[in-house]
Design a protein around this nucleic acid. Sequence first.
DNA 1: GAATTATGTCAACATTGCTGACCTAATGGC
DNA 2: GCCATTAGGTCAGCAATGTTGACATAATTC
Lengths: 152, 152
Amino acid sequence: MYELIELFFFAYRDFVGDADRLLEAYGFGRAHHRVLYFVSRRPGLTIAELLEILRITKQSLNRVLRELVDKSFVEIRAGALDRRRRQLYATPDGERLAQRLAVVQTRRFALALEQLGDWGLPSARSFLEAMIDPQKASSDAAGRTEPAKRAS
Amino acid sequence: MYELIELFFFAYRDFVGDADRLLEAYGFGRAHHRVLYFVSRRPGLTIAELLEILRITKQSLNRVLRELVDKSFVEIRAGALDRRRRQLYATPDGERLAQRLAVVQTRRFALALEQLGDWGLPSARSFLEAMIDPQKASSDAAGRTEPAKRAS
DNA sequence: GAATTATGTCAACATTGCTGACCTAATGGC
DNA sequence: GCCATTAGGTCAGCAATGTTGACATAATTC
């Protein structure tokens, strides 16, 4: 089981490497990729929600987010209900780039799963799910739009 | 399958997070962890071999390696056959720390695999293996001691 | 109207990666 | 023995991405 440590390291290294080559052409790094990815997958995400997913500070986020906005890959709109809670959306350009990045990464999954037969996908999925910390606030759950209500 | 992208991200994030908390107490970062890990697993590793595994430059490596040596977690000895090719070994202290780091990381694997039944380990292993780029020079293979002979 | 909340921003710093240039010591070819 | 090559170390400077701390602003709530 010890060997899984380095297999995980090598697998993740090669996995992110796929996207790196693409990002270079846009002058973006991995941090931009992560932001664009989650904004594209969860349209209308607020800043606070994104910070919780990425587990970084607002100052770190702001630097890369500003670049994505300046280059018109991400759009910030005032929140619908609460105008303070800005909501993030990928622009058409942003959506296209997110798509291209997803393609190279899912291709690696597809090639890997091809070698593993029918049980490859479900067992990979349950393995990865089991490796993730149980979510206290379920803020990593997909498709969430409602702000996390605090005790009141 | 798209979902695997973020599952992989979250799983790796939590996986390295385990070790991060431990490393802080020693004033080490992830870079130190990676070096210590491979030195401990492949005693007698040379600098060039380590550089190839980590895919970083010697300048980057040297910074963290020097700290590990200064704090007596890693030892450098002149190569047995070729005194230029220095060989790396974990000291008893280094071995102990590597062990503690491995414990927290294998615990996560153990807890995850517990939920997955008998097929958990073999399917996780083959999934991760399939995600790794095929090795051109097999320099990532475990247990190598012989220097890579060049054409001669 | 005042306190709270969500976010932005400036400044300074740490870690970990990079390139380029140059140095030393050991080896190997001749 | 001499010289080119090889393995590695080191210095300087820079980039990306993370951190803290302090303070500003606008919207919301009480």
